[in-house]
Design a protein around this nucleic acid. Structure first.
Length: 572
RNA sequence: CGGGAUGUGGCGCAGUUUGGUUAGCGCGCAGCGUUCGGGACGCUGAGGCCCCGGGUUCAAAUCCCGGCAUCCCGACCA
């Protein structure tokens, strides 16, 4: 493509409405332009990258045995009422009316449509399994769109839906998608982790998120430096503390601790540190008072407590609960409080020393509270919120916490939609069952944000070759001297030669100053930059720069087409 | 939805506090000339419902009221 006729205008200044690097750069490099909050026009350069990412997704989906379809964006709202998700999505859905005043939803996702489709076509176990996917625009009226493409109201998403006869089949479909996702994100050049998502409320359903590691990511997640363990902060856990022999700390004694809000103040008053204190956190478990015991320097993970008592209803005590139970000394509960029916302790409380705990009466704490003497938990579990440096539950390595951009998720749905929308099959004995579904999403347009976040520097974008809009950026510097005509002619030859070899080339044939051309080349970020000027031509060479590393060398003009074609083929 | 900020040629901004000629600057755009290896320079020029509506005033980009839009923090969220 000749830049002289490319529909592109790069910007020198960051746009006022962009905060994060990926958003700023995508606008400055002329990939996208904002039309409305969270809604963008895609200019040629951006559209090429989007297409390239979509193609990688398409390759891998096809390879994994999924079949591409295209489902409607305008979906009758009745379908959403049938599944009950009309209310669930609420104002998150864009709704439009036709001329007869029937309501439609602009697709935020497509479970309803695809399930109905499959229900209408397939009805036998012989038909299954089947996996359908599409790459299509989705609409969600986010409360707060942000960071350009990262959380947009209109976005390109790949959504796949698998239909199996049973759970074993679902597991196979799920595993195939999981593997395909790893290949997709690897090919896109992303540093990512698959993260176990919290799966408490919907029974046995399994769900994993793919997080591209990025400081601006909206979600924090825990991961192990040594193995592939990763989980979101709610689901994360740590290696249990082994049992130790307890040392008698001496007799329990009570200390007056009035007007001391917070663990740290109490610890200081007692000349100790927060990690030697014990917190007793009150939970309501199906109406019973249950205490969760954790060290004073740690937070209790409510989800972990809830999991431990599932399927019972578990919730943290509120101010209202304490108001209703004045006999519970809020802030001074000890692990042996009479009113508690059960206690669940984090395993890190298996320490040899005695603890400082609430004294079960207001304004008092007790010292030398000993495990096995003053208190014996009814259950042990890992119930603290994981912090950096904690030990990995699977390998014992150090855990880290980073932020990530959720670029994909895989989910074992079960029969929720197949039951609601009548997607059933008959088995070989003639009895009818709901199909077992999985759904699998990839945020195609969001991936661009993640890629730019990871692959940029002060000068601009540095596209991974796999998704770059062009492989080679050819900068022509003819100057005005006697050699100008020769440079021009040689550059044209080079351009034509590369194109003949199937190399995607962005040819800067503009009548612009060298500085402008170099700056644009760095901003636009093609993997290989080639500069042809009068001096190089005289010596029979062109200069080559690898955008990502800044490495430069010279290559023989006579073999340039050959070398570059080989390089482009090798890296894309 | 709560808190904060912003809205002025295509883009980035100044001017608003203290109302007063013809609303400025940089980039970009057009023309001419010089220049030509890391965002060159000079001259000339085009381009503005100063977000919208109402009000105050002799006079409003500027003050007041109402609305809309955009961004940030939070809440929310497949």
């Amino acid at each position: 493509m000749r830049m002289s006729s490319l529909f592109l205008r790069t910007l020198r200044d960051d746009p006022a409405d962009a905060e994060v690097a990926s958003h700023q750069l995508m606008v400055r490099a002329g990939l996208i332009r904002r039309v409305s909050s969270g809604i963008y026009s895609w200019l040629p350069m951006g559209n090429r990258v989007l297409r390239n990412v979509a193609q990688i997704v398409r390759d891998e989906m096809d390879e994994a045995g999924a079949q591409e379809v295209s489902l409607p964006i305008a979906q009758p709202l009745d379908l959403w009422k049938q599944s009950g998700r009309d209310e669930m999505y609420g104002s998150m859905m864009f709704r439009v009316q036709d001329r007869k005043e029937n309501w439609y939803a602009l697709a935020p996702t497509a479970e309803e449509v695809v399930t109905t489709l499959v229900a209408g076509e397939y009805s036998s176990y012989r038909d299954l399994p089947v996996n359908l996917y599409q790459i299509n625009w989705k609409y969600r009226d986010e409360l707060r769109p942000r960071f350009g493409l990262l959380r947009a109201r209109e976005f390109l998403m790949k959504d796949a839906y698998s239909f199996d006869a049973d759970l074993e089949g679902l597991q196979r479909s799920y595993d195939a998608m999981f593997a395909a996702y790893q290949r997709v994100f690897t090919r896109c050049g992303l540093t990512f982790r698959s993260v176990k998502a919290q799966s408490g409320e919907i029974g046995g359903d399994t769900s994993q998120e793919f997080m591209a590691v990025a400081a601006i990511g909206e979600d924090a997640f825990v991961w192990c430096e040594q193995c592939d363990y990763a989980a979101n902060t709610e689901a994360a856990t740590r290696r249990p503390t082994p049992e130790v022999s307890i040392v008698d700390p001496g007799p329990r004694e009570s200390v007056h601790t009035p007007d001391m809000p917070g663990i740290d103040v109490v610890a200081e008053h007692l000349g100790t540190t927060a990690d030697l204190l014990m917190k007793s956190i009150a939970f309501d478990v199906d109406g019973d008072l249950v205490l969760a015991l954790v060290p004073g320097d740690r937070e209790v993970n409510e989800f972990a407590v809830a999991n431990a008592y599932a399927p019972a209803k578990v919730r943290l005590y509120t101010d209202a609960d304490f108001a209703a139970h004045p006999e519970i000394p809020k802030g001074y509960i000890g692990p042996d409080f009479d009113g508690a029916t059960r206690t669940i302790a984090d395993s890190s409380l298996r320490a040899p020393h005695g603890w400082v705990t609430g004294a079960n009466r207001v304004d008092h704490h007790d010292r030398n509270v000993m495990l096995g003497r003053e208190f014996t938990p009814t259950a042990w579990a890992e119930i603290v919120v994981v912090e950096p440096g904690d030990r990995c539950p699977s390998c014992g390595g150090p855990l880290r916490i980073d932020r990530g951009i959720e670029v994909g998720h895989v989910f074992q749905l079960g029969d929720k939609y197949s039951k609601a929308l009548g997607a059933t099959y008959v088995d070989d004995s003639g009895s009818e069952h709901p199909m077992v579904m999985g759904c699998y999403g990839i945020g195609v347009s969001r991936i661009l944000s993640a890629i730019v976040e990871e692959h940029h520097d002060d000068h601009g974008i540095a596209w991974p070759a796999s998704i770059a809009p062009y492989q080679v950026h050819l900068v022509m510097l003819p100057g005005r001297g006697d050699g100008a005509v020769a440079v021009l002619a040689t550059a044209e030859e080079l351009y034509a030669g590369l194109r003949d070899r199937g190399v995607e080339v962005l040819f800067d044939d503009r009548d612009a100053s060298p500085g402008v051309k170099f700056a644009d080349a760095d901003l636009l970020g093609m993997p290989i930059q080639i500069t042809l000027g009068g001096k190089g031509l005289a010596r029979g060479i062109v200069e080559r720069k690898v955008r990502a590393t800044g490495e430069r060398d010279e290559i023989d003009l006579a073999n340039a087409v050959e070398i570059l074609a080989a390089q482009a083929a090798a890296q894309s």
